[in-house]
Design a protein around this nucleic acid. Structure first.
Lengths: 343, 343
DNA sequence: ATTAGCACTCGATACGATAGAGTGCTAACA
DNA sequence: TGTTAGCACTCTATCGTATCGAGTGCTAAT
């Protein structure tokens, strides 16, 4: 797919102008602002070709051209020079993260806020997902005679707890024995393995606490499985409303509605693969995003992929900036999370 | 402030019609739909009076009347018959809650979703706030040589945890001793008391673990204090965009922006008092809500107020329905939360 | 291969006319 | 004295028309 150098320059000009103005770009504009040596007429000819090839389109006969999804794709893959996150931004990310010591969730939320602030688009982020980790340690804490707090620590350092209510009292040392036994059996298991866990075997080793184990275990499993309907954080939803594409109230509504469907967002984010990936307009599988672009990536703890981040913007997105910000963000996030857990 | 019976009926008619249609209500409409026995002319006279008294207003000369904030207030205080939540709704709330066994946070989020679904307005809810509870029990769990997980259980059953990293190793039984000591000293303290806690005294009783205590305690306190920037949950933000008052994109944007300012929402919710309270339009202290109405109430655990819920809608709100839903919701929520914790 | 010139298209904007909803006032009526 | 019918008046919303201007495609000249 080789178009001459001038065509490439013209496509680039159209995209970059359109990204800024959201207005169709005409030949005169290009001749004046981007290719000062070339006349509008020549540019018109080239544009006609580009349109035939499907890289740009005309909203209506007497308007300028706007990039098509295919045009953006070519731009992202071949034309765009990777705009490095400038140092100020990079420093900002680093610094912000250094200031945010504390819980994992807080860090992740903060990343979401940063993403939306820096890009001026909408960001979505999944909280660390248990599903992708395994159990490291488990502890039962006695609250009162028949109430127990179960604390589960995963190998990624995520902590979950669940209050269990028992039908019968349990003594402190019985609790310790049960804890030990559960630890023996459960430690190292992936969360997914636990669902089809061998309750029978466990009961044989219950040392006279069969009934308690029988009560504790199912609820424990339920907590783990259920609480893995992982949390999604959003930020900067209103940013997109500032864009002219959403001055149509209907589109705005639709977008808003979509942003409240956590399941959908979750699904979208879960398709994210390790490195940064970009879906432009119609490339998106989800209907609601057919006129948005999506940039997604994943973050890790200890090298283990544990969640994803994404930003949603119009197809006329500042791809190079957005991509590099997402990249920088996930790498910093992974680093910080790992540091929190590890050291 | 006594206006005759007919005036009251007319005001009620205007409000109830306007709530449904969002269109100014004319004398003819009232005569036809609400006061079939009275002619438009008579109603016009009465309306002129009501306008003089400030209960209704005219958007422009040749339009019908719309209720003023003062009009709504009169309606809420005196005219409106408390529309009972109908049984279907009440059952729905009860049933939904019964199905949601599990963590506290999940229950609260669910309440938020229910509120917005049932009212078709926007709901905001604060997660249970530590600040309003005291410490019941504290447990340190050893993760590895120099890493400890602190689990704090409050008297309202809220559980917080914090991973602490120590500069030196700590043995299992040292940890137990420290745990016991911390429990002795901290149990029963309100979260607010902890900030100005007597570190000195603590150190004297540290039994040779001064350094560890010195490391653990500040971070513990920080977790408690910091994590109390309580979470706010929202739901149904897009509901309001379906209303004609927000077909103006600018208003929509403003609203959206406001809904992302958690601090502001928090402030608003924190003014909620025990029983249901209603702020209509200009009665709101916050500028951004000057043309909304707000219904707020609090929920409790064990009789202790621990968080608030609210719904935000246009001033032409279905007050009676909304109020009774909020009422029913908080009482159910309190009951469920208490049950989760207590029994 | 490039460019100047020109006729043409089509959306956006402004303007004027019109219709309709609703009022306030006056005068008649019970 | 309270109620009602009638009527003139006001103001918005809507629709059609005219106009403007940006931008194109095509042709012919360079």
């Amino acid at each position: 797919m080789d178009l001459g150098n001038r065509k490439r320059l013209i496509l680039q000009a159209i995209i970059e102008d359109y990204v800024n103005t959201a207005e169709p770009v005409g030949s005169r504009t290009i001749s004046k602002k981007y290719l000062t040596g070339t006349s509008p007429a020549t540019i018109r000819n080239e544009m006609a070709d580009l349109e035939d090839m499907g890289f740009i389109e005309q909203p209506h006969t007497s308007a300028g051209r706007i990039p098509s999804d295919k045009g953006y794709r070519l731009y992202v893959d071949n034309i765009m020079r990777q705009k490095l996150v400038n140092d100020t931004q990079r420093d900002m990310i680093k610094k912000e993260f250094l200031d945010t010591l504390g819980e994992i969730d807080r860090l992740v939320k903060h990343a979401s806020k940063l993403l939306s602030q820096m890009t001026q688009y909408t960001s979505i982020v999944t909280a660390p997902q248990l599903r992708r980790t395994s159990i490291k340690q488990l502890q039962l804490i006695r609250i009162d005679n028949a109430t127990v707090l179960a604390v589960i620590i995963t190998d990624a350092g995520i902590v979950k707890n669940s209050v269990l209510r028992l039908m019968q009292d349990v003594s402190p040392d019985a609790l310790i024995r049960i804890t030990n036994m559960l630890n023996d059996r459960l430690a190292g298991l992936g969360i997914e393995d636990i669902e089809d866990f061998d309750l029978e075997y466990m009961l044989k080793n219950a040392l006279g606490h069969e009934e308690i184990v029988e009560q504790v275990l199912p609820e424990l499993i339920q907590t783990l499985v259920y609480s893995d309907t992982a949390e999604i954080y959003r930020d900067g939803v209103s940013n997109l409303l500032n864009l002219p594409e959403y001055s149509d109230i209907k589109k705005a509504r639709n977008f808003l509605n979509t942003m409240e469907e956590k399941d959908l967002l979750f699904k979208v984010l879960n398709e994210a693969r390790g490195d940064v990936s970009v879906s432009i307009g119609s490339e998106n599988k989800i209907d609601q995003f057919k006129d948005c672009s999506l940039i997604t990536a994943t973050y890790k703890i200890n090298g283990k992929t544990i969640g994803s981040v994404g930003i949603i913007g119009p197809t006329r997105m500042e791809y190079s900036k957005a991509i590099s910000i997402v990249e920088c963000m996930t790498s910093n996030l992974s680093e910080m999370l790992t540091r929190i857990i590890k050291r």
